[in-house]
Design a binder for these strands. Structure first.
Lengths: 125, 125
DNA sequence: GTATTATTGCAACATAGTCGCAATAGTATT
DNA sequence: AATACTATTGCGACTATGTTGCAATAATAC
């Protein structure tokens, strides 16, 4: 299954790049009207498979996607934390990696860590 | 809104107690047939509101619920990690709390951390 | 230019969870 | 024990998010 370069993929990639935060499928459809729902989902899934983006599961179960900026190609891990603001609902990646230690005999494959709270613009004084 | 003690709540609480792991709505309906879907959801939500249980969001967006064993009543926090096995799909609570440091001006309200991988019985040798 | 097959759009589907409403059943008061 | 109050339940319908099968289209290699 070789990947092909298509306008749809480039548009979605451009949106992901332009956005500092992690974005949901909804955010993308708000900016693109000429690409089918299913296609967007398929492209996002493909990006995740290919290590171009990573997926974050929000508190409500919704998926968010962010470009893998800090991920080395050789060592692809995502054990950094994410933050979602309860007010403005934006999702950010936090830089700092967290240390995960597992019990004997356990093996890690992926980590999804999400903090919910209020960001610096939405936090009550 | 005062809470009332009902057979439905007691049954679900009993299941949560009997289960060592965090369980999904599905697991409950497999063990109870005479309680309505919607009722189970409502009771689980109520348990979360009341601090009796906490909610874990799995990789696929599904909700899991676990009794709050280690949570002090006064200081109710859930910044411990959870683990879901990709093979047997069970969800466990890990004891160790993790340290979360936020950027200036941010406030935390909740944390949901899930490790995906293979548990000690399912891990490949 | 042609053949191959990845990608797309469409529609239908799947699943998880929620909500409004009327009926039922805890709880407190008398 | 009967009554009033209202939390809870069951039912059905609904919403939202994401997936899938299939035929048509288009990117790539030759």
């Amino acid at each position: 299954m070789n990947r092909r370069k298509t306008p749809s993929k480039e548009k979605i990639l451009a949106i992901l790049k332009s956005q500092g935060d992690a974005i949901s499928h909804e955010t993308i459809t708000n900016q693109i009207t000429d690409i089918n729902r299913a296609t967007i989902y398929r492209i996002l899934n493909q990006f995740c498979e290919d290590g171009i983006a990573h997926r974050i599961i929000a508190e409500n179960g919704k998926q968010f996607f962010a470009l893998c900026k800090t991920c080395e190609v050789e060592e692809h891990h995502h054990n950094h934390l994410h933050f979602q603001c309860n007010t403005c609902e934006k999702v950010e990646c936090f830089e700092s990696e967290i240390n995960i230690s597992l019990p004997e005999g356990y093996a890690i494959e992926n980590f999804n860590g999400l903090i919910n709270g209020y960001c610096n613009t939405c936090a009550p004084a």
